[in-house]
Nucleic acid binder design. Structure first.
Length: 470
RNA sequence: GUCCCCUUCGUCUAGAGGCCUAGGACAUUACCCUUUCACGGUAGUAACACGGGUUCGAAUCCCGUAGGGGACGCCA
């Protein structure tokens, strides 16, 4: 049987990084088995679902390179849960007909009072089944009922989870949950089961905050006589402090990572290694991940998000990334710094500078910060350390240097270096006494890529211009 | 409150009863390389939550304790 997974976000906000991890695992698992990965938007909560949110989530998935195989649902390119509401209602009515569900006329106020009382008495908060065995003839007039599951009162329900193992709960712990709301729309609990069944999902891979819901969902499968899929519940991703990852930690949304200059392949690699492992392997290409990924490698305990490690993973992917691609990606960050877009000539310079720039950076933002000096105009703004370096003596040396560079026939890094070395010997000073002031003059900073290469890239005219306008 | 799950260096993890003097990666410290900063290289610090069992032998199996997380909606 072919593997079919699904990623099922609710469009009530952005794509959470934890959701992205779930999406990645679903995608990898499907790819590994040559199956399909479907996207289902859980938009049954009409009050909170928004089209903007759907856009954001789709954008996030696309940016991460996680595609889905169901792109033809009428006017939509994903499966909309709300669009299936008639089907959900139909199944709920079937369950009433076969005796595994019933109408409940209890009002919200009534239920609130019931829970308050249970809480006060220290009892478990559960629906007490007050309409479970009452006849419909007792129903109040004009009241719109909900449909509730008629859950077994005795015995136990066992879920065999591919990650957590076999877990059993007493049925007495589970109450009669609502399947269909008074307005005829399905609850999440009901809709997931119907949709997973209808879509032929073989493996339900999701966050383990859904673990305890699974018992109730299994009861619906059983009530309808449907095959139960394989469940795999992923441990949560926590913030650096061990609390649930949220806005408070700074970067909960996938878009935050794009904005901070991380590469999608780095995010994929980092997320993959959170709660999943393949021996000692750390740097794992997506191709390799597809080959290796399986449910066996998933760990059981929650993982904390570590920005330092993400940075190092990103630095690795920066190093092996194509320079033109990086320049294009970093260009928007540079434009923000400069207040203007790069010209074609500047873009060309940026690409040639990239090999020396990218090994010094962990993110595209750092690349942009570090490379901005290439594109600035004189007079440069010197930072504090650079100013300190540019003493009268240093300026004199630079003047001498400028005179010699003027006459260089080939303005290459090697030629510039030889010139500097020759000058350092003549003046009996260390190479640093020349190179550092030169760096300050050309970049405005004491930190930069190798300075002779920088000078060569800047070209003779611009280099001399910068030296002479200090 | 009730139920469910989890627990190896600071962090992510390897570990399937003897291969463990507990390995790798990030972070951190020192040194090397070096025109700066990085990269790279070498070395170091650092963990089996606790208490009982089972066993010739436990990080690994069992029980308990503690700590953490999750679920208990006409939210998803």
């Amino acid at each position: 049987m072919p593997v079919i997974t699904r990623f099922a976000p609710s469009p009530t906000g952005y794509l959470h990084i934890g959701g992205a991890r779930t999406a990645l695992f679903c995608w990898l698992f499907a790819k590994h088995h040559g199956g399909q990965n479907l996207l289902r938007v859980e938009d049954t909560d009409r009050a909170r679902s928004t089209p903007e949110s759907i856009e954001t989530i789709l954008d996030g998935l696309t940016w991460l390179g996680l595609d889905w195989d169901n792109k033809n649902y009428g006017d939509k390119n994903f499966y909309s849960q709300y669009g299936q509401r008639e089907r959900h209602a139909e199944v709920a009515r079937q369950m009433v007909a076969n005796g595994t569900a019933y109408y409940c006329y209890a009002t919200t106020a009534e239920l609130d009072a019931m829970r308050a009382e249970q809480k006060e008495k220290g009892l478990p908060q559960r629906y007490d089944g007050r309409w479970r065995d009452r006849d419909v003839s007792e129903a109040p007039k004009d009241a719109k009922p909900v449909i509730r599951m008629k859950a077994p009162l005795t015995g136990e329900t066992t879920v065999v989870d591919a990650v957590l193992g076999s877990i059993t709960v007493q049925n007495s712990q589970l109450d009669d949950m609502v399947l269909l709301r008074a307005d005829g729309t399905p609850t999440y609990m009901h809709a997931v089961v119907v949709d997973d069944h209808d879509m032929g999902i073989t493996h339900v891979i999701r966050g383990d905050d859904h673990m305890t819901n699974t018992f109730r969902q299994v009861q619906i499968y059983k009530a309808m006589g449907w095959d139960i899929p394989i469940f795999a519940h992923l441990p949560m991703i926590l913030g650096p402090d061990g609390a649930k990852l949220s806005k408070r930690h700074g970067a909960p949304a996938v878009s935050d990572y794009r904005d901070r200059g991380y590469l999608p392949e780095a995010i994929r690699n980092y997320l993959l290694r959170l709660c999943w492992s393949h021996g000692d392997d750390e740097i794992i290409s997506t191709e390799q991940a597809i080959e290796w990924f399986d449910l066996d490698g998933i760990g059981k305990s929650p993982a904390r998000f570590d920005f330092a490690k993400l940075g190092s993973v990103n630095a690795h992917y920066l190093k092996i990334a194509d320079d033109t691609r990086l320049a294009k990606l970093a260009a928007s960050f540079i434009a923000k710094i400069l207040g203007a877009d790069l010209t074609a000539a500047q873009m060309d310079l940026f690409i040639r500078a990239m090999p020396d720039v990218k090994t010094r950076a962990q993110t595209l933002v750092e690349i942009a910060d570090m490379a901005a000096f290439y594109f600035r105009t004189t007079p440069l703004v010197f930072d504090e350390k650079a100013q300190k370096l540019l003493t009268p003596e240093a300026k004199q040396i630079l003047a001498d240097l400028a005179a010699r560079l003027e006459n260089l026939p080939d303005f290459t890094g090697e030629a510039i270096e030889s010139t500097c070395r020759a000058l350092s010997e003549e003046k009996a000073v260390k190479l640093g006494a020349i190179a550092q002031p030169l760096r300050a003059a050309l970049t405005g900073s004491t930190v930069s890529p190798p300075i002779f290469g920088v000078a060569a890239l800047l070209g003779k005219t611009e280099s001399l211009n910068r030296i002479r306008t200090i």
